[in-house]
Design a protein around this nucleic acid. Structure first.
Lengths: 156, 156
DNA sequence: AACTAATTATTAGCTTACCTAATTATTATG
DNA sequence: CATAATAATTAGGTAAGCTAATAATTAGTT
């Protein structure tokens, strides 16, 4: 291995290591981070496709397994933020839609949840942000293929 | 917030969320990622201070509570990677030292870890890798200033 | 049409990496 | 010496995942 390359590797490891610990505490009481993220996804899906998101779709979008999504959605349904309806075109599927309450909580929480990251996007600028997203995605994809152990459970 | 920008923010949030679970599985079977981190800390403390690290010191270095450290250290002691001795100068304290086995496992874990990242650098190429490092560093620096909570992680 | 295969979601139970509150030793201090 | 402070531990909890197995439904094949 060349010394330049090894140096780069070391630096990349260090850079990755710094980001391992993201905040765990939700800025909104009674709404967890993971729940917030899923609510955003559902809203997006409704905006784009005009219908509720299926569990498998959310799972894919969030890079999380479907049992995980099922549990999150169940929790949100119990809290009244989300509604589950069977898709009449494919009765295996479930369409998850936001309730009025869910939209409200999403609206009020959006700023609190987004502010840190949105500040970062503003700071970096749109172009650099997109480059960063692309490079991270490429890294994940590589690590998933090259070293399956590395990322538990990532599936397409 | 504009919708393009919000979309970028969403994607960046997701990229970081994936990132957080990157090292769920350690490259060495039988050694968890958190355990590896703690072993590194202990080794460092031994190198710098020439004696075992106290629970409270590790806790402080890792920005983790002492009960958490106690549990991790207990696990490592059971695996034989670490030894706990009561400090004769202050019998409340415990000095944690690496065993020979602990040093060995740490070495091989570091190698495995390094080779994963080195593969990534090869895959991305030197230029992209450097761009990624720069962007991560810039992001980290911004977040450190903007949101102090973010940085619960790596300090010496 | 009937079987088999595939897909979708769920259930049950586990794991990692933390946390808080309360408690037990021990040391320091008025 | 009594009390306060400090160090570590115990007990129990949480968030955010995971896998394996299973039920329901749809698709594909003979």
């Amino acid at each position: 291995m060349e010394s330049t390359s090894r140096d780069t590797t070391q630096k990349l490891m260090d850079a990755f290591a710094r980001f391992r610990r993201l905040h765990r505490d939700s800025p909104i009481p009674g709404l967890k981070h993971s729940e917030m993220r899923i609510l955003f996804r559902i809203r997006k899906n409704m905006a784009v496709h005009g219908c509720g998101a299926r569990i498998s779709e959310i799972s894919h979008m969030m890079h999380v397994t479907s049992p995980t999504v099922t549990q999150l959605v169940n929790g949100l349904a119990k809290s009244g933020y989300v509604e589950r309806t069977i898709d009449p075109k494919d009765r295996r599927s479930i369409r998850v839609t936001l309730t009025k309450q869910g939209e409200d909580v999403l609206k009020s929480a959006a700023d609190a949840f987004f502010s840190e990251f949105n500040g970062l996007v503003t700071h970096l600028g749109e172009e650099k942000s997109n480059t960063l997203i692309e490079l991270l995605t490429e890294s994940f994809d590589y690590l998933r293929e090259a070293t399956p152990i590395f990322i538990a459970g990532e599936q397409e």
